[in-house]
Write a protein that binds this DNA or RNA. Structure first.
Lengths: 243, 243
DNA sequence: CGCGAGGTTGATTTGTGTCAATGCACGTGG
DNA sequence: CCACGTGCATTGACACAAATCAACCTCGCG
């Protein structure tokens, strides 16, 4: 891995110095490897460490009594889970890994030294706000948009987020999820995800082969899905950044 | 108003001293009155003040191109909107008032003096985490539950939250929302909200007259709606609190 | 008195879920 | 090298929940 997605991402949120970047790099040195489907931390547990996805995809999810699952957040490489959980006494949901993945664990004491650095603290707070914006947008997506627009919106978001950490370009990116996992993200049935993907392909919005997606015309797909990237706040908090 | 819901709420999150309570009281002295439907702050605006609802109900919402609206959060008396927004450059959604309401405005500088107080800071952070938990639960609600369970869950949540600030007791509380507003919360049609309410009434889960709701048997309704209140974290962060 | 906002109800359509079968790629073991 | 099993994608037939369209009702208010 060339430059860490974690740093690359936080660079969007604040003007970090090389020393800041070094400090961040050091904080994510201790990693653990998980197999697809494993839990990083489970519902009901006492929150311990903060996690940063280094490679692979993870998620925040909740399983209901009837066995259905809602994925409430996707963590891509560079994403941090739950900066402030240690305040709480109990996880009200699980954090799991969607693919084989490498996840860094940061102890609370290390987090404190990070947030003592004002630039890093700003970057982390920015990232937290962006996560919240994303969650809100997912609610809008699931609550208001029909199936085809819902998936369109999701693909647009994933592309922009992956692009921001150097993992997507030219409309092409990997989506290493099964259709069942996609279904748990958008609140649909796997069968209906399948059919909806077929519709999007037929309409020439996207092309897929294996687990690779190509967005044929981003502007068109974004319009169709009602995607409007301001909620990701990728212009960050930097004064000079473009909106 | 006897004791402020704002203080009453934050008391759940940390062990405040009387001095802390005084400091909080003073921070919410400047209020403005809004008429139902007014915007407290609009999408696209530069975030300025932090708001606390003193009386009435407010919400966070987003309107889509086709005119449909998703309410992403309900702010009850005592709830604070967007502790950290000032980090961002642009509101990606609107804050509006669902009923006639009184809203306190806190300037960023005042916020800073509040968060300099470690107990208050803990309480505010706790409240922020509870808000996030609520948002996640709404996504689960809209993404996975059928209409009747969805409304059941919402009523359970509203009851517990109102109860926590002294505005509900014995299963009875006011829901000063139109069915159209309810629909925007749960991602359904007003017509379908109406029919679903009728089902809940007929099943003797709830009774309603005017805008007052009575939950006949909370445990039964909670079970039906899959409501499990841990996400509200009302046991807070206090060591001695019961779970 | 008339108007408008909100609630209620009915008939119908449509999007999505459900159930079930098939196909396909891949890995494993005989 | 082939037989088999498994996980995932795909497809079809059908059921059902929810949206849509439209009418009507009630009540508070100017």
């Amino acid at each position: 891995m060339d430059i860490q997605p974690f740093i690359r991402k936080l660079d969007h949120g604040a003007d970090l110095t090389d020393a800041d970047r070094g400090q961040l790099s050091k904080a994510v040195q201790h990693t653990a490897v998980f197999k697809a489907g494993d839990d990083v931390s489970s519902q009901g547990e006492v929150p311990r460490n903060v996690h940063v996805v280094m490679a692979g995809w993870a998620c925040r999810y909740k399983i209901l009594d009837d066995g259905s699952r809602q994925i409430m957040a996707i963590f891509l490489p560079g994403d941090m889970c739950d900066l402030h959980v240690q305040i709480l006494k109990k996880m009200d949901h699980g954090i799991g890994v969607l693919t084989d993945a490498e996840v860094a664990q940061i102890r609370p004491s290390t987090i404190n030294t990070l947030t003592d650095n004002p630039r890093i603290n700003l970057a982390l707070s920015w990232a937290t706000l962006a996560d919240q914006g994303t969650l809100r947008e997912w609610l809008v997506n699931v609550g208001q948009r029909p199936a085809n627009a819902r998936l369109a919106h999701l693909f647009c978001e994933l592309y922009v987020r992956l692009n921001a950490v150097g993992l997507a370009d030219n409309g092409v990116f990997d989506v290493p999820l099964t259709q069942t996992q996609l279904a748990d993200v958008v609140g649909m049935t796997p069968v209906h995800v399948n059919r909806t993907l077929a519709v999007l392909r037929k309409a020439r919005f996207i092309e897929t082969n294996a687990r690779r997606v190509r967005i044929c015309d981003f502007a068109k797909l974004a319009d169709f899905g009602g995607f409007e990237p301001s909620y990701l706040h990728l212009s960050g908090t930097k004064p000079g950044a473009t909106v």
